[in-house]
Computed example of a mutant assay.
Amino acid sequence: MSYFNVTRFNVTRRRMIAIVATAAGSAFLTGSRIARAGDAVRWRGSALGAQVSIEIYHPDRAEAERLVARCVQDVRRLERQFSLYLADSAICRLNRTGILVSPDADMVALLKASLFFGDLTDGAFDPTVQPLWQLYADHFSSERPDPDGPSAQKVAETLAKVGRRGLLVSADRVALVKHGAAITLNGIAQGYATDRAVDRLRLAGLSTTLVDMGEIRAIGSRPEGTPWRIGLADPDRLGALTETIDLVDRAVATSAGAGFRFDSKGRFTHLFDPATGCSPSLYSTVSVIAPTATEADALSTAFSLMPLSRIRNVVSVRSNVQARMTDSGGTLTVCDA
Rank of each mutant, 00 (worst) to 15 (best):
N5C: 15
R13I: 15
R14E: 14
V20T: 10
G25E: 00
A27D: 10
L29C: 13
I34G: 01
G38V: 02
D39E: 15
A40R: 13
A40L: 14
V41Y: 00
R42I: 05
R44T: 07
S46Y: 12
Q51Y: 14
V52M: 10
V52Y: 01
I54T: 11
I54Y: 10
H58D: 13
V68R: 06
V75L: 05
L86P: 01
I91H: 02
L94I: 03
T97A: 07
M107K: 01
A109G: 04
L110C: 15
A113S: 08
S114A: 15
F117E: 04
D119Q: 13
G123D: 01
G123A: 06
A124D: 10
F125G: 01
T128E: 03
P131M: 02
Q134V: 11
Q134H: 02
L135G: 01
D138W: 00
S141Y: 09
P150S: 02
V155W: 03
K161E: 09
R164V: 10
L167M: 12
L167H: 01
L168S: 09
S170K: 11
S170Y: 02
A171I: 02
L176N: 02
L176E: 04
A181S: 04
I183W: 02
A189S: 04
G191P: 05
A193M: 13
T194F: 09
T194H: 10
T194D: 11
T209K: 06
L210S: 04
V211L: 11
M213H: 09
E215W: 03
S221W: 05
S221K: 07
R222T: 07
P223C: 09
P227C: 07
A233M: 04
P235V: 05
D236N: 12
T242S: 08
T244G: 09
D246H: 15
V248F: 08
R250F: 00
R250L: 03
A258R: 13
F260G: 14
F268T: 07
H270M: 13
L271V: 14
L271S: 09
G277Q: 04
L282R: 08
Y283G: 06
S284E: 05
S287D: 05
A290M: 07
P291F: 03
T292C: 12
T294E: 11
T294D: 08
L299A: 09
F303Y: 13
L305R: 09
L305V: 14
M306S: 11
P307I: 11
A323R: 03
G330A: 08
T331L: 12
L332S: 01
V334A: 08
C335P: 00
C335L: 09
D336C: 10
A337T: 15
